[in-house]
């Protein structure tokens, strides 16, 4: 086939996808502020997206904080100082690793679940059935998930921050024989509110990305079981990539002085 034709087709497909996603996003966001509101569903989704992700996020944060403390110690040529290790752990967890790793873990768990659920609803005509029962599918399915993720992700990341710092503390005091009192003191003294809030802002954006990708791919899945599988994969991959890319952009904006 003509080489130019192939390029043209790929570019057109890309723009069509971007257009579909933009329309979908605009539709979803505009419905957030228009009644009716489904409070019961919002609560249900907050439990599913937030509460049930706690164990995964907590474990990730704990071990990451611990490993980070060890790496700084060994990598820094055995820096035998509670103050340096504790400061870098606290900054690393709250600014970067808490939100990013928490976001990626939730992306794997939640974006996949949302895409699979909505995808199955699409191929079994349940989404069409909503329309025939005078219920807007965007409002009923997408809005509660979107809002729940944007609310719960920062809460999850705040908990991850605390547990991650604690992971560093445990590794530091148990394996590296740091003084517990000094470690906690320097952490508290060096950590600024900005470090934590910047991470929480990131977390809110990641929550939006996760729910949006899950809903978008689930909503547009087609072709039976295989289509649902593809939608699930696409949701997780696109959510993860967008999280990492937007993290870079936000870091450069939030910390540009």
């Amino acid at each position: 086939m003509n080489f130019l034709a192939i390029i043209g087709r790929v570019v057109l497909a890309l723009f069509a996808e971007i257009g579909r996603l933009s329309l979908f996003t605009w539709g979803a966001v505009s419905h957030i502020f228009r009644p009716p509101f489904f409070w019961r569903l919002l609560f249900q989704q907050m439990m599913r997206i937030g509460y049930f992700s706690l164990p995964v996020v907590a474990l990730t944060a704990f071990f990451t904080g611990g490993a980070l403390a060890l790496q700084i110690y060994y990598g820094g040529n055995n820096i035998n100082s509670e103050s340096i290790v504790s400061t870098i752990v606290a900054l690393g967890i709250t600014r970067e690793l808490g939100p990013v790793l928490g976001g990626l873990m939730v992306a794997g768990r939640v974006a996949a679940a949302i895409a699979a659920e909505l995808g199955t609803m699409r191929v079994t005509e349940q989404i069409d059935a909503l329309t025939t029962l005078s219920t807007n599918p965007i409002k009923y399915l997408v809005v509660p998930r979107l809002v729940a993720a944007v609310i719960t992700l920062p809460i999850l990341v705040l908990i991850a921050d605390i547990i991650g710092v604690m992971g560093g503390f445990v590794a530091g005091t148990a394996s590296l024989n740091f003084n517990p009192g000094v470690y906690i003191n320097t952490t508290v003294n060096f950590l600024k509110a900005d470090d934590v809030t910047s991470g929480l802002i990131k977390a809110g954006v990641f929550g939006f990305i996760i729910a949006l990708m899950g809903c978008f791919h689930g909503f547009h899945s087609k072709g039976g079981a295989q289509g649902v599988g593809r939608a699930t994969t696409n949701a997780v991959v696109s959510a993860s990539v967008l999280i990492l890319a937007s993290n870079y952009v936000m870091t450069s904006l939030l910390f540009a002085k």
């Binding site: 609803m121 079994t124 005509e125 349940q126 069409d128 059935a129 029962l133 005078s134 219920t135 009923y140």
Partner: peptide, 24 residues
Amino acid sequence: FQGGALFDSLSVWENVAFGLIQGR
């Protein structure tokens, strides 16, 4: 619908009453 398209997260009566509760 051809396959019924019942909402599998809801019980049978909630399915039947869906249009009344959500729509009306």
